[in-house]
Computed example of a mutant assay.
Amino acid sequence: MKNIVLKIVFLIALCVFLYSGFNLGYTYYKYWKVDHDNDVLVKEVVKTEKKHKASNVRTIDFNYLRRLNKDIVGWLYIKDVADYPILKGQSNDTYLHHNYKKAYSFAGSIFLDEISNKNFQDGNTIIYGHNMNNGSMFGQLKKFSEQSFMNNHPIAYIYLPDGSVNVYDIFSFNRLDATDTNYYRNNIEYGSFIKKLVSASLANRQVSTKKAPLIMLSTCATHDTNWRSVVFARLSKTIHKG
């Protein structure tokens, strides 16, 4: 009888071990798949030309991207932080858990809020991405809470389908409630909005008082609350094709 009990206990322990191992392996695979798919896409569409010793010039093959998915409206690049296509679906649910191929992905995509215009000319364009544990999507945004990191990563780029590039000055990191319509809106009064943001920021840089379109990069601060980690940047210039 004792041997039978021991065998049952062993079998149960073995099943638990195998199940836990499967879940761990599957989780690892899902994260690997997200990184792998984006690495493949970057190699396909991002071209970097060496212009001179001090800088590189990046171009994005939007002809290829639009053949993949016409919902791709731009490409976001922040050094060491993000290098992804930006999508706009019919609603905020469209790309919450779907990738640029429209296939299911637990990491979803980087996407515009349904109230934001795809020309990035709103007073405040809202862009979402998941806070992934491996740092993918918007998993690196929280680093902007460190003043030194913001100082060393002051620029965001959005490449557009017409070949132009919007260049943004990153100026504020905030923790905000996702239900706060004072911030999650596209029409703003620039001066008072900027003043309120900077005064409540965890890290900030000097920002111009001259009105210009903003982008608002938003991700979950934690997975079980309404708090969001949010990075704001102001359009400083647009580089036109040619």
Score class of each variant (00 low, 15 high):
Gly135Gln: 12
Ser136Val: 10
Ser136Ile: 01
Ser136Tyr: 09
Met137Asn: 14
Met137Val: 09
Met137Gly: 11
Phe138Gln: 01
Phe138Asn: 02
Phe138Ala: 02
Phe138Tyr: 14
Phe138Glu: 07
Phe138Lys: 01
Phe138Ser: 03
Gly139Pro: 13
Gly139Glu: 06
Gly139Asn: 10
Gly139Phe: 09
Gly139Trp: 08
Gly139Thr: 08
Gln140Phe: 01
Gln140Thr: 05
Gln140Cys: 03
Leu141Trp: 00
Leu141Thr: 05
Leu141Ala: 07
Leu141Ile: 14
Leu141Pro: 02
Leu141Phe: 03
Leu141His: 03
Leu141Ser: 05
Leu141Gln: 04
Lys142Met: 12
Lys142Ile: 13
Lys142Gln: 14
Lys142His: 15
Lys142Asp: 13
Lys143Arg: 15
Lys143Glu: 14
Lys143Thr: 01
Lys143Val: 00
Lys143Ala: 13
Phe144Gly: 00
Phe144Met: 01
Phe144Arg: 01
Phe144Glu: 02
Phe144Thr: 03
Phe144Lys: 01
Ser145Leu: 03
Ser145Arg: 10
Ser145Gln: 14
Ser145Phe: 01
Glu146Asn: 15
Glu146Leu: 08
Glu146Ser: 13
Ser148Leu: 11
Ser148Gly: 08
Ser148Pro: 03
Ser148Val: 08
Ser148Phe: 05
Ser148Thr: 12
Ser148Trp: 07
Phe149Tyr: 15
Phe149Pro: 02
Phe149Trp: 09
Phe149Asn: 05
Phe149His: 08
Phe149Glu: 08
Phe149Met: 07
Phe149Ser: 06
Phe149Val: 02
Met150Gly: 02
Met150Arg: 04
Met150Trp: 06
Met150Pro: 00
Asn151Leu: 12
Asn151Ala: 12
Asn152Ile: 00
Asn152Glu: 15
Asn152Gly: 06
Asn152Cys: 00
Asn152Leu: 11
Asn152Pro: 00
His153Leu: 06
His153Arg: 11
Pro154Asp: 02
Pro154Trp: 00
Pro154Arg: 09
Pro154Leu: 04
Pro154Glu: 05
Pro154Ile: 01
Ile155Phe: 13
Ile155Lys: 13
Ile155Asp: 12
Ile155Val: 15
Ile155Gly: 01
Ala156Asp: 00
Ala156Gln: 07
Ala156Phe: 12
Ala156Lys: 09
Ala156Arg: 09
Tyr157Met: 14
Tyr157Asp: 07
Tyr157Ile: 04
Tyr157Gln: 14
Tyr157Trp: 14
Tyr157Ser: 12
Tyr157Asn: 13
Tyr157Phe: 15
Ile158Trp: 10
Ile158Pro: 02
Ile158Leu: 08
Ile158Gln: 07
Ile158Ser: 02
Ile158Phe: 11
Ile158Cys: 03
Ile158Met: 07
Tyr159Gly: 05
Tyr159Thr: 02
Tyr159Pro: 02
Tyr159His: 14
Tyr159Met: 09
Tyr159Ala: 08
Leu160Trp: 06
Leu160Glu: 09
Leu160Thr: 12
Leu160Gly: 06
Leu160Tyr: 07
Pro161Gln: 10
Pro161Leu: 06
Pro161Ala: 10
Pro161His: 10
Pro161Thr: 08
Pro161Met: 09
Asp162Thr: 12
Asp162Ile: 11
Asp162Glu: 14
Asp162Gln: 14
Asp162Leu: 12
Asp162Asn: 15
Asp162Trp: 08
Gly163Leu: 02
Gly163Trp: 00
Gly163Gln: 03
Ser164Thr: 10
Ser164Gln: 07
Ser164Tyr: 11
